[in-house]
Design a protein around this nucleic acid. Sequence first.
DNA 1: TTTACTCGTAAACGGCGTTAACTAAAGCAC
DNA 2: GTGCTTTAGTTAACGCCGTTTACGAGTAAA
Lengths: 238, 238
Amino acid sequence: MPTTRRERMRDATLLEIKEVAREHLRAHGPSGISLRGIARDLGMTAPALYRYYASLDDLLTAMIETYTNEICDAMEAARDAMPADDLDGRLVAVTRAFRRWSLDHRPEFAMVFGAPVPGYTEPEEGGVHQAGGRMGAIFFALFFELWRRQPFPVPPDEEITPALRRQLRLFAAACCGEDDDAPLGVIRLFAASWVRLYGLVAIEVFGHMHFMLEDMEPLFEAELNDLAKTIGLEKGSA
Amino acid sequence: MPTTRRERMRDATLLEIKEVAREHLRAHGPSGISLRGIARDLGMTAPALYRYYASLDDLLTAMIETYTNEICDAMEAARDAMPADDLDGRLVAVTRAFRRWSLDHRPEFAMVFGAPVPGYTEPEEGGVHQAGGRMGAIFFALFFELWRRQPFPVPPDEEITPALRRQLRLFAAACCGEDDDAPLGVIRLFAASWVRLYGLVAIEVFGHMHFMLEDMEPLFEAELNDLAKTIGLEKGSA
DNA sequence: TTTACTCGTAAACGGCGTTAACTAAAGCAC
DNA sequence: GTGCTTTAGTTAACGCCGTTTACGAGTAAA
């Protein structure tokens, strides 16, 4: 047990800072997060926070990691609420959970999936990157297993551009390991599906579709249904 | 002619401010834009800028409007570079122009299409909203005319959820005027296409696809090809 | 020439991230 | 328990920031 008294205190403060920061995020947006403001709420002075986070950027990074893992938790919970053999239902549930969490946590979504605002810190190697991988894996695992059990039609390798083929193969090797019996078309379709899902949710959260639709839910469900059809599920809406 | 000497000077300064702001944007990101910094570069003091923009937010808003119109210009230029009767080629060109501009102007894209960072100023009624409408119109006009000339298969009205149907009808009325002979399926397909395109470009500009693809261009072209096929074009890549 | 207005200044307020020097307390070895 | 080390906090300061106020100088118009 590495839980000395001091370490427990420290971890508690570490967490408390992140929680207060989240309140500020929800109240005043990402740019409303300030060390001085957080310190004030905590009854401390700003420099004290540097004992816990090396900089404001560091805190923001930690927040992004937390939120990414939170989305994953929400998606896994939705997934596990469905029977293990109902892969169709699980995939739909995970997809809906992704949208629901994003709409219920717009500022957090903006931090995780929006433009990397600062002097873009750490593209690789961070916990953020790791958490991002976790989320992709949740989707991909379901997608891939679904194809394994009841293969749906995917574009044949010859129809995929060589340049794209090369990249898909790279991802396949890194993700599926050595058993590369899966055709690249599955991964090609997965990539397209993820992009489509991201676009749907991001455009809704950011409000960039207001010029034509007031409520995006019907379009989301329709698109989800469409996506479900292309991967062999007959019903995606019920 | 409203161009008195003073007004010409004023407009020049107005523009110069926006240009220096853009330099800062490209050099240090959206959060690197500061009135004091701009004033310094201009050989002025910060409060002087308030003669031209009511606040920093106002300047940012003006920048967003400018950039949106710039995208439109780029798209129209790409469109008009193709023969007027080659609607297929025009649509593909416009789509590619949208991506190209976005990649060549990442910080600008982030401002226009990213999360609305500040205390979200003016959702409606601004020049920003107007420019957004202009961009949507460029796409839609091409999309719609293409369908008119050589109708491609669209989902029948009965297959569209009533809730979605209602909204599409609203947009059709506002956009196509009274000649509502176009089936809602066309608009339904347009909405889906726009979301898909947005997702592709946003995910590339923001770098959120690095976990699986290093270069998004092949996927973009493949998806563009796919989109082209669904609206009746056989070749979208050449 | 006088009047009104525009463009710019300097000074100031409060807020920010961050650093440096310092203090008080907690943990720990003997 | 005494003495050393580490830790969590402080205050003071630096240099940024947006914004407001009051004021001066130059221009346009009466």
